[in-house]
């Protein structure tokens, strides 16, 4: 019996991993293990013998278990350490057959930026409005102080639609700017107004690196009492700062849009490769009294500004895209980058 325990403890010591240790346990304490067998012999002994022998065997079992637990603890620790130090893991490994697994989807850059712009303006207290893409000449031009045959209509080469005309509304056109929504919102809500209108606009312009027949614009309108160009400058600097994530320097210069007076163009100082230049980013100005009137507002009581910028242009700047055409190419090699 002394030999048995000596062997057992030695075997526990020699086990070099958890599996070997487990085997030792099975050998001694398993259903037909050596110690288990010894215990089984007890039932054939006298009461006295049962007590002394039994005690002896229990001692052996106890000693075995104690040693076993110590060894097990040691080997567990060793196993974890081995995993931590030795197990090879290649983080550069790719799944071998991604075909079957989920592919990465993507949002169009214009969608991403539109949402960003909406969020920035929402945070600044603007609501986001919407209007039809097929507009009437009335909303697209007349109501915006661009009467028929005004030279300004040249600035916005227009797609006309083959549809019946209306006496007040004129012909149907694809809107050349998001500005008609100014009138629609004034008609709907009156003043004050504090809103932006992101949307698709159309120009009768052949496609080249900087022009396209379709592009996305964001219109802004702030109408209240005492609203000035200083507020426009303040808000635009803040917007550009949040959008481009760096301090923005802007300048105003005279610009001509019949629906605003004073009319301004806003430039932003743009630095690329260490060179700075003024970049035209939006048209803006104080809403023309005729426009307020067309929208049913009292121009003696209310005043404010409007602005419009090309989201498409901002997308080119933000992502360093060199031609407007790729924005409508819908080439997955390009879409998947976003």
């Amino acid at each position: 019996m002394q030999k048995l325990i000596k062997d057992a403890l030695q075997e526990i010591q020699q086990a070099s991993n958890l599996q070997e240790l487990k085997n030792v346990e099975v050998k001694y304490l398993g259903r037909s293990g050596l110690i288990t067998d010894l215990l089984k012999t007890l039932k054939d002994l006298s009461t006295e013998e049962k007590r002394t022998k039994g005690q002896e065997i229990q001692e052996i079992k106890k000693s075995f278990t104690e040693n076993y637990l110590i060894a097990e603890k040691k080997l567990q620790k060793q196993a974890i350490e081995e995993k931590l130090t030795k197990e090879f893991f290649d983080i550069t490994f790719n799944e071998i057959n991604p075909q079957r697994s989920q592919q990465k989807g993507s949002l169009h850059p214009l969608s991403i930026l539109q949402k960003e712009v909406e969020e920035i303006f929402s945070e600044m207290g603007f609501e986001v409005a919407d209007g039809p893409e097929v507009e009437s000449e009335y909303y697209n031009f007349e109501a915006l102080n661009i009467p028929a045959h005004h030279p300004a209509r040249d600035m916005q080469d227009t797609f006309f639609l083959n549809c019946p005309t209306d006496k007040k509304q004129g012909q149907l056109v694809l809107r050349t700017h998001t500005s008609p929504v100014q009138i629609r919102m004034m008609e709907k809500y009156g003043a004050p107004l504090r809103l932006i209108v992101p949307g698709r606009v159309f120009r009768y312009e052949a496609t080249d690196a900087t022009h396209d027949s379709t592009f996305n614009q964001v219109e802004g309108l702030l109408i209240d009492k005492n609203i000035s160009l200083a507020h426009l400058k303040g808000l635009m600097q803040e917007f550009l700062k949040r959008f481009f994530k760096e301090e923005a320097t802007v300048r105003f210069r005279p610009g001509y849009f019949p629906f605003v007076e004073p009319g301004i163009e806003m430039d932003m100082l743009w630095t690329k490769n260490g060179k700075s230049k003024w970049l035209e980013v939006m048209g803006a100005g104080m809403v023309h009294p005729n426009v307020l009137k067309a929208g049913g507002l009292d121009s003696n009581k209310y005043q404010g500004w409007a602005f419009g910028f090309g989201l498409t242009r901002f997308a080119l700047l933000r992502y360093n895209i060199d031609g407007i055409r790729s924005l409508h190419s819908n080439d997955l090699r390009y879409l998947k980058q976003f």
Binding site: D224, S228, H231, F252
Partner: peptide, 26 residues
């Protein structure tokens, strides 16, 4: 107003953030 503003100089306008009044919660 435009004549005056442009000759005076748009660059002299100091940026101001407009107040957001209770009335204009979007």
């Amino acid at each position: 107003t435009e004549e005056l503003a442009r000759l005076y100089g748009y660059e002299k306008i100091k940026p101001i953030i407009p107040e957001l009044s209770i009335r204009t919660i979007p």
